[in-house]
């Protein structure tokens, strides 16, 4: 059977605020297979984190509307009952957050919180067994002196160590899907390298699929297989990582890659930023959300500002742009 592990269709998320309706996610669809690693890239306000929380049903509040579907092993998470979602969280689908400094409960020991993650989904586990599990989990994520460490509180650990603990907690029930929302953004590069490697190792051991939410294209290139690029709540490009970096099709993806200063690039070579700033999610432009910053929009006689582009196949990639396919598929150098 070749059904994907998770299949998201036409996901919309709106927040009502005092200033107006924030259209955070607008019609996002994608699949992820068992054991696969998928990256969702975008800048702040692109809707990537909101998409992740929607899959976990973590966006709540008085004025939030979520529509569309998210089929996890054939069952729609978005229409599940509360109790069913609760049982799914942390067992089948686990999540890691951006800031390890605030993600752990400051009032309980690390051991307590790790074993809690297990006992929620396996009630009746004996104390002795739980302790052994916690020790094992903490050792697996590379924290030295586990016997001493499980009795300590979160504030006694460094940021990198705390992220390891969060990972240990997320993986203790061997989830089928791990959603990592900017897991290394708050960490230093050498620690980031440690954490990314750890996620990779744990993923291989458990066969977990990973959705990695990030703004860092370097991280995407190093650890994932496929990538979704989001802009102002929409998916603008869907591609394998190799294709996305070697021949990006959407003008935004191209702009983003050009903005990134690679370690391999020359000193004092002029960077090519994307002009302007992202649109406000309350007052979205009509048509393509990127048109006001896009250098090609003018050539399409106003189509970009009136008509929303749908994702279309460009070679092996999918791109939401009105430009003709041959132009989108052209190598970067010629089209810029």
């Amino acid at each position: 059977m070749n059904t994907p592990l998770l299949s998201v269709r036409d996901l919309h998320v709106n927040f009502g605020t005092s200033e107006g309706d924030v259209q955070a996610v607008r019609g996002v669809s994608f699949d992820i297979d068992r054991g696969e690693t998928l990256a969702i890239v975008g800048e702040s306000g692109s809707g990537k984190s909101v998409t992740a929380s929607a899959i976990m049903r973590l966006n709540f509040g008085a004025d939030i509307r979520v529509s569309g579907s998210a089929l996890f092993e054939g069952k729609d998470i978005l229409s599940m009952g509360e109790e069913e979602v609760r049982k799914m969280r942390g067992s089948d689908v686990a999540m890691i957050f951006q800031d390890p400094l605030t993600a752990l409960n400051p009032f309980y020991t690390v051991g307590n919180q790790i074993s809690e993650a297990y006992t929620i989904h396996h009630p009746g586990t004996s104390k002795k067994e739980l302790r052994a599990l916690a020790l094992d989990a903490i050792e697996k994520v590379g924290i030295p002196e586990p016997v001493k460490r499980i009795k300590q509180y979160p504030h006694e650990f460094s940021g990198g160590m705390r992220q390891r603990i969060v990972i240990a907690m997320a993986l203790i029930n061997q989830p089928k899907l791990l959603i990592a929302d900017e897991p290394t953004t708050a960490l230093d590069v050498t620690v980031q390298a440690q954490i990314l490697e750890l996620i990779g190792v744990m993923q291989e051991e458990n066969g977990t699929a990973v959705i990695l939410i990030t703004h860092d294209l370097g991280v995407v290139a190093e650890v994932t297989e496929r990538v979704l690029v989001m802009y102002a709540g929409r998916l603008v490009e869907k591609a394998s990582v190799i294709d996305a970096f070697a021949s990006p099709t959407h003008p935004y993806t191209r702009g983003l890659l050009n903005s990134v200063k690679s370690l391999d690039s020359d000193r004092h070579s002029r960077l090519e930023p994307i002009p302007g700033i992202p649109p406000s999610l309350i007052d979205l432009p009509t048509g393509c959300p990127f048109h006001s910053r896009c250098r090609y929009a003018a050539s399409l006689n106003g189509r970009c500002s009136t008509e929303v582009p749908e994702l279309k196949a460009v070679g092996n990639s999918w791109s939401a742009c009105h430009l003709p396919v041959d132009l989108l598929a052209a190598p970067i150098k010629e089209s810029l």
Partner: peptide
Amino acid sequence: RLGIAKGLP
């Protein structure tokens, strides 16, 4: 949020 994500009742 992490508590919810863990599946706490």
